Computed example of a mutant assay.
Amino acid sequence: MTARPHHTTARQAAEGFTAAVCRAEDGCGAADGRVLEALRAATRRTPSGLLVATGCLGRHLRCPHQEGNQVPRAGHRVVVQPCARDRTPLGPALAFGPLTDPEQADALAHWLAEGLGQGRRPPRRLLAVRPSHRPRQ
C-alpha cells in the first residue's frame, strides 16, 4: 500500500483558525475596542486559535479607508483562515466586516469558538463583500 500525500478537504472540520484584524491607524484601528476584545476572548477559548493584528487588509476586502473615503463609523475588518491543529489551511479565507458594535463581534466570536469547529457556516450578515475586480492602474 502506498502512502497518499497529505491533503485536506473542504468538508474537514477546522480545529482552529488564524484571524487577521486590521489595526491601521488611519482606518479600522480607530474602531470600538469592545469589538476587538470579543475576538480576543474567542481566541482564548479556542486552543488552536490565533489572532493577529495587522495593517490594512485592503488587498483582501474592500476597504473604504484605503481609497481615501471618509467613513463616519469605522469598523474592524477581519480575515479568518480556518485551519487544522498543525495550522494547515482548510478551505478559503473568509472576510468579515466592518464590525461596528459588540453584538456583531460576539456573533463572530461565537462562530469562531464553537461553530467553525462543528462545520457551521459563518453568520452571513457579518461577511464582507470582496472586490469583484482589481482597479486598473
Rank of each mutant, 00 (worst) to 15 (best):
V129Q: 13
G33M: 14
V52E: 13
Q137W: 14
V80M: 06
T54M: 10
G27M: 04
L61M: 11
E25A: 15
G58N: 09
V129N: 03
G75E: 09
P92F: 03
R130H: 10
A113L: 03
H110C: 03
R134P: 00
A13W: 11
R44G: 10
Q66P: 00
V35T: 08
A128C: 07
V71K: 07
T54D: 15
D26Q: 14
A30K: 10
Q137A: 15
A41R: 06
A30I: 00
A109D: 01
R136F: 01
Q104R: 11
R130W: 07
L39M: 04
A20N: 05
Q70F: 12
P47E: 10
C56S: 04
T9L: 10
A3N: 06
A41T: 06
L94F: 08
F96N: 02
E15M: 08
R134Y: 01
L94G: 07
R124T: 12
P131F: 09
P122L: 09
P122C: 08
G75V: 10
T8Y: 03
R125L: 12
W111R: 11
R134N: 01
P5I: 09
R62V: 13
E37H: 14
G91M: 13
P47W: 08
E37V: 12
L36F: 09
R120D: 13
L112Y: 10
T2Y: 03
E114I: 06
T46R: 10
V79C: 01
T18N: 00
A109Y: 05
P98H: 07
H76F: 08
G16K: 07
L94E: 12
S48N: 15
G91L: 13
V52K: 05
T88M: 11
A93H: 13
V80Q: 05
G115V: 12
M1S: 10
A107G: 04
D106I: 06
V71C: 02
C22F: 07
A30R: 14
C28F: 01
P47M: 10
P5M: 05
R40S: 09
L51K: 09
A24N: 13
H7E: 14
P122D: 01
A74Q: 14
A24T: 03
M1D: 05
A20W: 12
C22V: 11
R130T: 15
G29V: 02
G97F: 00
E15K: 08
G117W: 01
R130Y: 03
Q70A: 15
G115Q: 12
H6E: 15
G58C: 13
F96M: 10
P92A: 13
C56M: 04
C28H: 03
L36Y: 12
T54A: 14
V129Y: 02
P82F: 02
A128Y: 09
P47K: 07
R59W: 04
G68D: 02
R87C: 00
P5C: 03
H6V: 15
A105Y: 02
C56W: 03
A24P: 00
L94M: 15
H110F: 00
L127N: 04
A14L: 13
R34L: 03
G115T: 14
L126D: 11
R59P: 10
M1E: 10
G115P: 11
R124L: 13
A42D: 02
P102K: 06
A128N: 07
L126I: 12
G33W: 08
C83H: 08
Q81Y: 06
D101H: 15
Q81R: 14
H7Q: 14
A105P: 07
A84M: 07
R121P: 05
R134D: 06
L116H: 07
A41M: 01
Q137N: 11
D86F: 14
R77W: 14
L36Q: 02
